[in-house]
């Protein structure tokens, strides 16, 4: 699926020259390495790349990438990233967000983002806990589980992030694992090359606060659905039966959890236009003059607006 291009930028170029302050053994390191490799393989340059993070451990990832990095408020990376991408569609925009950032405080944005299908790669780091505030339950921790910081077992249920992404309209849905870097690089590349909003959940042990779903726990449970023959692609001419078949297979996979945990690409839907395409359809000038690249004044600094049509519309005499 991915086209091999000779990379001008190497993994080293994307590694920011600063210290990293995640806990030793944190799954975030794996995700970060996969991001470096994916960026280098895709041949994008640092200045065309914007990594937008939220609040939490995941929201530090953009500091470690040599690219434009935007550290937003808790829960807000997606709307900020949407503004960036719509204003300058030439940029490659990544969201790095956590399970609390995405599924709790930013849930409204997550849901409504699906309705728009802006061409963004959304990577959700899922470790089921709020690490930076010392291990509270996040919206992805199942009901009744008690990780080590919880005074009582989790009294709230969990959100199935992949299912939520599906019902709200994300057009590429996948899941990876922080320590399977080879697979993760492939998933990040495919998500990025997908035209539209791609949601990649990354399962990630938190060695400090999640003593249940550890590296050892995940060991032997994870498998790649695509290697087992699962085809995630919704064909352009899919009839109702094909569509229903894919949706049924999708549901079966995303609710599988326990002894076997599926990873890989769950859905690829190229049949919906991106938000950028929808805007361009209404406003053809958008392709030529997106908001960031619109000339708004003449050489003397004067407004370019022709007031005449507005006069005609509101003419009093």
């Amino acid at each position: 699926m991915a086209v091999e291009t000779k990379p001008r930028w190497t993994v080293k170029d994307f590694r920011a020259p600063y210290e990293v302050d995640w806990c030793p053994g944190c799954g975030d390191f794996g995700i970060l390495n996969a991001i470096y490799q994916a960026l280098a393989q895709m041949g994008v340059s640092p200045h065309e790349t914007v990594v937008v993070g939220g609040i939490g451990c995941s929201g530090k990832a953009q500091y470690y990438v040599n690219a434009y990095g935007v550290h937003t408020l808790h829960g807000r990376p997606l709307p900020v990233a949407t503004g960036i991408k719509l204003a300058n569609p030439n940029l490659k925009v990544f969201v790095v967000s956590g399970d609390g950032d995405s599924m709790a405080i930013g849930a409204a944005h997550f849901v409504n983002g699906g309705r728009r299908n802006v061409d963004i790669t959304y990577i959700m780091f899922n470790n089921e806990v709020y690490g930076l505030t010392k291990g509270q339950a996040s919206p992805t921790l199942p009901l009744g589980l008690q990780t080590k910081s919880l005074p009582e077992p989790n009294i709230q249920g969990n959100i199935n992030a992949l299912m939520l992404a599906f019902t709200t309209g994300y057009t590429w849905i996948g899941r990876g694992y922080a320590y399977n870097i080879k697979q993760l690089v492939r998933l990040i590349r495919e998500a990025t090359e997908h035209p539209g909003l791609a949601f990649l959940e990354v399962l990630q042990p938190c060695p400090t606060y999640n003593n249940l779903h550890t590296k050892d726990w995940y060991q032997g449970r994870l498998y790649d659905i695509n290697e087992e023959g699962y085809d995630p692609v919704l064909p352009p001419d899919a009839d109702d039966a094909t569509r229903r078949d894919l949706y049924a297979r999708f549901m079966e996979k995303v609710f599988e959890w326990g002894d076997r945990i599926p990873t890989g690409v769950f859905l690829v839907n190229r049949n919906l236009p991106t938000f950028e395409e929808r805007i361009a359809e209404r406003q053809p000038h958008y392709r030529i003059h997106p908001p960031a690249l619109t000339r708004i004044r003449d050489d003397e600094g004067r407004s370019l607006l022709d007031i005449q049509p507005f006069y005609e519309e509101h003419r009093a005499r």
Binding site: V80, K85, A87, N88, N112, P291, A292
Partner: peptide, 17 residues
């Protein structure tokens, strides 16, 4: 919340937002 966040994002690229 999204309205001001999205406009902020656009502003970062140089769009008047």
């Amino acid at each position: 919340i999204s309205a001001i966040a999205m406009a902020s994002g656009a502003a970062l690229t140089g769009a008047r937002a």
